[in-house]
Simulated assay, not measured.
Amino acid sequence: MKSIFSSHFQRRAAQALVLSVAALGAAAVLAHGDVVPQAVDTHTLPQLGAKWLEANPYNEQSPARAEALRIGTSAYNQNCARCHGLEAISGGIAPDLRKIDSECLGLSDAGKKAACFKEMDDYFLSTVRRGRTRDGRVYMPPFEATLSQEAIWTVRTYLETRRVP
C-alpha cells in the first residue's frame, strides 16, 4: 500500500510542478503585455517642427537637455522597457539599447566618431519610426504614428545616458 501511495503522490507532485512551470511561462509571456505605443506629453519642450531632424537636438549643449531626459526616461519606461528591459538592460528578448552605439565610443578619430554617431542616430530614428519586421513578423511596432519627433528624441537622450562601452 505504501508504494501505491508513494507513486500516486509522486505523480501528483510531478503534475503540480508541470502546471506551475506552465503557469509561470504563460505569466512571463503575458508580462510583456500588449506592445501598443503610448503617447508621450512633450509640451514642456521646444517644438521641433514637421521636418525630421537628423541628429538629437537634446544633446549635452541643449538647454532643454534636463527636461528631455526627464521625459525620455518616462517615455522609455512606457514604450520600450517591456521589450528592451528596465533601465535599457535587455533580458535577451530585444537588443540591449545601452550598446546601440558602443562601437562609436572606442573610435579615436573625431571625424569617424561623429560619422558613427550620426549613423547610429539614423538607425535609431528609422527603427523607432517604422518599426522592424522580418519574414512578415513584427519584431518592433512602428512608433511614428503615436510618438512625436520630440518624444522619440527624448528616448534617444535617455539612452545616451545609459551607454556602456
Rank of each mutant, 00 (worst) to 15 (best):
V138Q: 15
S7G: 08
A81L: 09
Y76C: 07
T42G: 12
S62N: 04
R137S: 05
Y58M: 00
A16K: 10
A50P: 04
K2H: 13
A88T: 06
Q61H: 05
S7C: 14
T44E: 15
K113C: 02
F5E: 11
R11S: 05
A23L: 15
H8M: 10
M1K: 15
A115Q: 06
L147W: 05
E150F: 06
K2W: 08
I4A: 05
T157C: 08
I4Y: 07
S148G: 12
P37T: 00
R70C: 10
V21A: 12
R162V: 07
S3H: 07
D135A: 14
T161E: 03
E160M: 03
A68E: 09
G49I: 03
M140D: 04
D96R: 00
D122W: 13
L69E: 00
A13N: 06
A81N: 09
E67N: 10
R137M: 13
Y158Q: 01
L19Y: 06
N59P: 00
L86S: 00
A28E: 14
R129E: 09
G49E: 01
P142Y: 14
C80W: 10
D41T: 06
R12H: 08
K2F: 10
R65V: 09
L24P: 04
A94Y: 08
A114I: 02
I71L: 13
K2G: 12
F117K: 12
G111T: 15
D121S: 08
W153D: 02
D109S: 01
S20I: 12
L125N: 10
A110Q: 08
P165Y: 00
L159P: 09
A115I: 02
A22M: 13
D34T: 12
A66F: 04
A23D: 05
G72E: 11
F9C: 07
D34R: 13
I89M: 15
C80A: 11
E67L: 12
G33T: 02
E54N: 06
Q38D: 00
D101C: 15
N56S: 01
L107G: 06
T73C: 03
L86Y: 03
R12P: 09
G72K: 03
A55S: 14
E60S: 13
Q10P: 08
S62R: 05
V21H: 06
L69R: 00
R137Q: 14
G106K: 09
N79T: 04
S3F: 09
A81T: 12
A16C: 08
